[in-house]
């Protein structure tokens, strides 16, 4: 087996072991939070809201709530794991090794993607308690969930690279990620918004992820699905490029 592949497997294994070991902090909280959303917004309030594009409000919000769990989990896994390795200085273990920058990035990012997917599946399974959502295009569902997890895991790594203290790892999720997720079409269709807000919403990258993901379930979207897919591929490429640049330069890691 190629040396870099062994190093990659090592990082992924370490990451998965870590989030499984502390599953009460990594897997359980998003499942509970999303279940409350299902209950309050879907069951209690949703029953009084009209169908959107022919699907019930509960069914409409499921893809967005799954995606919300995926986004937060993929991002938080990488940023907290990478920063804690800086805090304990054990990032030096791979820095002194011949593992390439690409291996380090992919190792951490795939760890985040796997946690994101695991949370996504768990949240989706919880939704069965309330409704059995349709699945019209599983390929699109898989593509969007994996690419979204990848984008946010890459974003989490950038945050982890720059973070200098524990506060730095929660600033972006609290002040940027959460508002963008709430305003990213999880709870509503942007077609129901006034014209100017529809335009503003299109600057929110999470909209494309949620909208494309929902297309995989119900076959309708506010934005053409190929356009959303291109956006996601673009984000992935840009964030990967930034990570490579930062690691090569040694930002936050080498003095």
């Amino acid at each position: 087996m190629n040396h870099n592949l062994v190093a990659f497997n090592t990082i992924v294994r370490k990451e998965v072991t870590r989030f499984l070991r502390i599953w009460t902090q990594t897997l359980l909280p998003p499942v509970i939070t999303q279940s409350l959303y299902f209950l309050i917004f879907g069951a209690f309030i949703g029953s009084q809201i009209n169908d959107i594009n022919g699907v019930s409000y509960m069914a409409f919000i499921i893809p967005g709530l799954v995606m919300m769990g995926v986004i937060n989990s993929a991002y938080m896994n990488v940023v907290s794991s990478f920063y804690s390795s800086k805090f304990m200085k054990n990032y030096e273990e791979f820095m002194v090794s011949p593992a390439s920058n690409e291996v380090i990035i992919f190792g951490y990012v795939i760890g985040g993607v796997l946690r994101g997917l695991m949370v996504g599946v768990l949240v989706f399974m919880v939704s069965f308690v309330f409704i059995r959502p349709e699945i019209s295009n599983p390929g699109i569902i898989l593509l969007f969930i994996i690419l979204t997890a990848l984008v946010f895991a890459l974003g989490g790594l950038i945050n982890g690279i720059f973070a200098k203290n524990w506060d730095d790892i929660s600033i972006f999720p609290t002040f940027v990620l959460t508002p963008l997720t709430y305003l990213g079409g999880v709870f509503y269709s942007i077609k129901d918004l006034p014209g100017v807000w529809q335009t503003v919403s299109k600057f929110n990258p999470i909209l494309y992820m949620v909208d494309g993901f929902r297309y995989g379930f119900y076959g309708f979207s506010d934005i053409p699905v190929y356009y959303s897919l291109l956006m996601l591929i673009g984000f992935t490429a840009i964030l990967f490029g930034i990570n490579i640049y930062l690691l090569k330069k040694g930002t936050g890691l080498k003095s």
Partner: peptide, 11 residues
């Protein structure tokens, strides 16, 4: 063992 992995040594 993890350190060995970073150096490409199988588990």
């Amino acid at each position: 063992i993890q350190q060995a992995g970073y150096f490409g040594i199988k588990r």
